[in-house]
Design a protein around this nucleic acid. Structure first.
Length: 290
DNA sequence: AGGGCACCTCGGGCGC
DNA sequence: TGCGCCCGAGGTGCCC
């Protein structure tokens, strides 16, 4: 599921629902979710008695700020949070429960069991894994065109895997990277050295616009994603290429095709996102030499 | 550095 | 038409 817009939507909702609540105790029923400290019992014991102050976000990670602790949570593919009354039936795939002292509880559900939680002392969370190597936030002021190019332009990888790598820019996942590349008219297999100034500018604008609009829409609900209040995001209705294989391109009417790039399902309009002929430049050099 | 696979469960699609 | 199997799914991390 969740890329930056979905995590940001969860963050906002969760912040409304749990800020100010005091944790009485924590129940962990799937130990592998808890990565730090190693023992789930130690994780639960450390959180007891602490009050949630706010919910922040770094890339696709949630940072739950407590008095004297920071809980870093990644939803991976299908992790979900919800706030329930303690007497409500516990749904299948609920793995962690934060029992508050007011009769409510925060529950973490995760069908695929891929999600992670790390607990840190304040300040440590940003300097230790998994947050320490994260790249620039694409919706913050520091993300300028210059900063964007500086982060990725010298790399030799195809542009799609490059944009998915959270060490350079955070927040893009498989949906929004396809959307941004389409909007910019750039084929996902192009490498940075083939991009001209106008390409960089369009790609930069497309990343900001795509993520910004998706945040405004409350994210995309592709399969199971719902925010902390169980509401669906609406951006899936605005998707231009993702999930639209064989449908008509909204720009040129041509077919959207699906292939695999960097091991990920990839949606493109070949007419709008042409792949420059390999070796064209080399051929031009040969021609000039004759 | 880049590609491939593993982590897990579920559901959709395809084939019989 | 119905059932069962296989593959793929929005993300990362570790292997080579």
């Amino acid at each position: 599921m969740p890329e930056l817009p979905e995590v940001e939507t969860v963050r906002r909702t969760l912040n409304e629902l749990v800020a100010g609540k005091r944790i009485e105790r924590v129940t962990v029923t799937l130990p592998r979710i808890i990565q730090r400290p190693e023992e789930p019992e130690a994780f639960a014991a450390a959180l007891a008695g602490h009050t949630i102050q706010s919910v922040e976000r770094r890339g696709k990670f949630l940072r739950i700020i407590l008095d004297g602790l920071v809980l870093v949570s990644h939803l991976r593919m299908e992790g979900r949070y919800g706030v329930y009354k303690q007497d409500e039936p516990v749904e299948l795939h609920t793995h962690v429960r934060f029992h508050f002292d007011d009769g409510m509880e925060l529950r973490y559900k995760d069908v695929r069991q891929f999600g992670t939680m790390h607990l840190f002392a304040p300040g440590d969370d940003l300097t230790l894994p998994p947050l320490n190597k994260l790249g620039i936030e694409p919706l913050e002021e520091a993300f300028t065109l210059q900063a964007f190019k500086k982060a990725v332009a010298s790399r030799k990888t195809k542009i799609k895997p490059l944009l998915l790598n959270q060490e350079h820019i955070v927040g893009l996942g498989n949906i929004y990277v396809d959307e941004a590349l389409f909007t910019a008219g750039i084929h996902p297999e192009r490498t940075p050295d083939t991009l001209k100034a106008a390409d960089w500018s369009r790609l930069y604008d497309a990343i900001r616009a795509t993520l910004g609009r998706a945040v405004d829409a409350g994210g995309s609900s592709i399969k199971s994603y719902v925010n902390g209040q169980g509401e669906m995001g609406m951006f899936q209705h605005e998707l231009l290429v993702y999930g639209r294989e064989k449908e008509a391109c909204r720009s040129c009417g041509g077919p959207i095709s699906k292939s695999v790039v960097g091991g990920r399902g990839t949606h493109i309009c070949l007419r709008c996102q042409p792949l420059p002929k390999a070796g064209k430049r080399a051929n031009q050099v040969k021609q000039a030499a004759k």
